[in-house]
Deep mutational scan, measured.
Amino acid sequence: TFYNFIMGFQNDNTPFGILAEHVSEDKAFPRLEERHQVIRAYVMSNYTDHQLIETTNRAISLYMANL
Rank of each mutant, 00 (worst) to 15 (best):
M64P: 01
L52W: 04
N11Q: 08
F9N: 01
N66I: 13
T14N: 07
K27S: 11
Q51L: 14
Y42T: 02
S24N: 12
Q37G: 09
Y3T: 01
F16Q: 01
T14M: 03
S45E: 14
F5I: 02
Q10K: 15
F5W: 12
A28S: 14
A41K: 10
M64W: 08
V38A: 11
T56E: 01
F29P: 01
I6N: 00
A59K: 03
V43P: 01
V38E: 09
N57Y: 11
N11R: 08
A65C: 10
E33M: 06
T14E: 04
D12V: 08
G8R: 12
R31V: 08
V43Q: 00
I39F: 04
T48C: 07
L52D: 04
R40C: 10
E33F: 03
L19E: 01
H50A: 14
Q51S: 13
M7H: 01
Y47C: 06
A20F: 07
V38T: 07
H22F: 14
S45H: 11
F9V: 03
T1F: 05
N57E: 14
T55I: 13
L62R: 06
I6A: 01
D12E: 13
R58M: 13
A41E: 14
H50K: 12
H22C: 08
S45M: 14
I6D: 00
S61T: 13
A59V: 07
T1N: 09
N4L: 11
N66K: 07
L32C: 12
G17F: 04
L19Q: 02
N66A: 14
E25P: 04
F2N: 00
H22K: 13
L62H: 06
R58G: 06
P15N: 09
N11G: 15
L19P: 01
N11C: 09
N11W: 08
I60T: 03
T14K: 03
P30L: 04
M7A: 04
Q37K: 08
L52K: 02
E33C: 06
Y3L: 03
A20P: 01
V38D: 06
S61W: 09
N46M: 08
Q51F: 15
L67W: 07
H50F: 11
S24E: 08
P30E: 01
A41C: 10
P15E: 14
T55R: 05
D12G: 07
L67D: 08
N4W: 07
V23E: 01
Y47A: 02
S45G: 09
T14I: 03
H22I: 14
S45L: 12
A41D: 14
Q51I: 13
E33V: 05
D49Q: 06
K27I: 11
D12N: 12
D12Y: 10
G8T: 14
L62S: 06
E25G: 13
K27H: 10
N57R: 09
G8L: 12
I53V: 09
R40P: 00
E34T: 15
A20G: 03
T14P: 03
I60R: 00
T56M: 15
G17L: 04
V38I: 10
E33Y: 03
F2P: 00
P30A: 03
T1L: 06
A20C: 03
M64Y: 08
S24R: 14
S61N: 11
